[in-house]
Amino acid sequence: MTISRWSGRVAVVTGASAGIGAATAIELAKNGLITIGLARRVEKIEELRSQLTSDQQKNFHAMKCDVSVEAEIVRTFSDIVKKFGGIDVLINNAAFMTLTKLIDLENSSEFQKVFEVNVFGVINCTREFVKSIRERNAEGHVIHINSILGHVMPFYLEHPTFGVYSASKFAVTALAEQHRQEFIKEKLNIKVTSLSPGFVATEMLGNIMKLSKEQIEKYLEKYPHLLPKDIADAIIYLLSTPQNVLVTELTIRPMNESS
């Protein structure tokens, strides 16, 4: 599996400070793409450099950007284009989850943040990406990191509510198809893929569910799970497909995931 045709071209990964985003940024840089990781915690992205060789580190860049803020997206993408000449690959990975219930009181601010990041972040980042493609009449590939929760609503009595997270990911499923149709109508040479993982072991588990390290280990022993590197490898596969092949939806689940 090779993505040599993307070597030397520019990739942007949102939410690159940890988890899937961090693993993806590392793999893209290893494969020769000029990789810009975006996150609010830019220092966390800088720490990833130690996993790369000195040559690979030259391909790796970190920029601070909160994708829930449209003005930051516009400014950051403009800066990337000025510095690197354009953007060829976009990985919309940034996501926010809250376990707040729909029927909880005073839940609006939490739910608004979910949609600002998971839905409007995808819309706004993709719009600025397309602007760069149009200006250069270039080819591109945008990958929306979706979720199995963007297709099904599993019911776990013992599990906390997913709140509006699933609703936001169902929106990403629709956005991916809408993007595909608009790219066709506008005659843009851009692939769009919705990549939907099952349960992935990331730091979100501890942050959202307020679990200790020991509790996380016990949780992962109980539930089949993927690792962030598994999703990064899937992204490399998607970028390796021939120009005439479009994978519109890729669902990846851990073996024996029950729901």
Rank of each mutant, 00 (worst) to 15 (best):
E214Y: 02
L38A: 14
N118I: 01
K229S: 11
A71R: 14
H225E: 12
V200W: 04
S147H: 13
V130S: 15
V69C: 08
A138S: 14
L52N: 06
Y223T: 08
V114S: 08
P224F: 04
E43H: 12
S258N: 12
V12I: 10
E177N: 15
L149F: 10
S78G: 04
D55V: 12
S7W: 02
H141Q: 04
N137C: 14
G163I: 04
V164E: 09
V247M: 11
S147L: 11
G32D: 00
S259H: 02
E217F: 05
I143F: 04
L211Y: 12
K222A: 10
Y165E: 07
A95Q: 05
L246H: 09
S78N: 11
P228E: 07
T76A: 10
M204H: 10
L250T: 14
I184S: 07
Q57L: 02
G8Q: 03
G121Y: 06
T98M: 07
L211V: 13
L239C: 03
G163W: 00
R5T: 13
V12W: 00
T241G: 01
E116R: 12
A16I: 05
R127G: 02
L188W: 09
R180Q: 11
F183E: 04
G140A: 06
M63D: 04
G198V: 09
Q112C: 13
E72S: 10
M63S: 06
I36G: 01
N93S: 07
K64M: 12
S240K: 09
V74S: 01
E116C: 09
E135A: 15
E27M: 13
Q215M: 08
T53G: 11
M204S: 13
R5N: 09
L188Y: 13
K131V: 02
K229C: 01
N137D: 15
G37I: 14
V74A: 03
H151V: 07
L33F: 01
G37Y: 12
M255L: 13
S194F: 05
R253E: 09
L99C: 05
K169L: 03
L175Y: 08
Q56M: 04
K213A: 14
R127T: 12
E214Q: 04
K169H: 06
I91G: 08
F162M: 09
S196R: 09
S78K: 14
E186M: 07
P224W: 06
T248R: 13
A94D: 09
K169I: 08
V74I: 15
E139C: 07
G21T: 10
I45Y: 03
D79M: 11
Y237C: 01
P160H: 11
L28E: 03
S50Q: 14
G121L: 05
M1F: 08
V42K: 05
L48W: 07
S7E: 15
I143M: 04
S147M: 11
R180W: 07
V12F: 00
A138W: 10
A29Q: 10
E72D: 15
T251I: 14
A201L: 11
I133T: 02
K30H: 10
K218D: 13
L239I: 05
F120Q: 12
P197W: 10
Y156T: 02
S194N: 14
L38D: 06
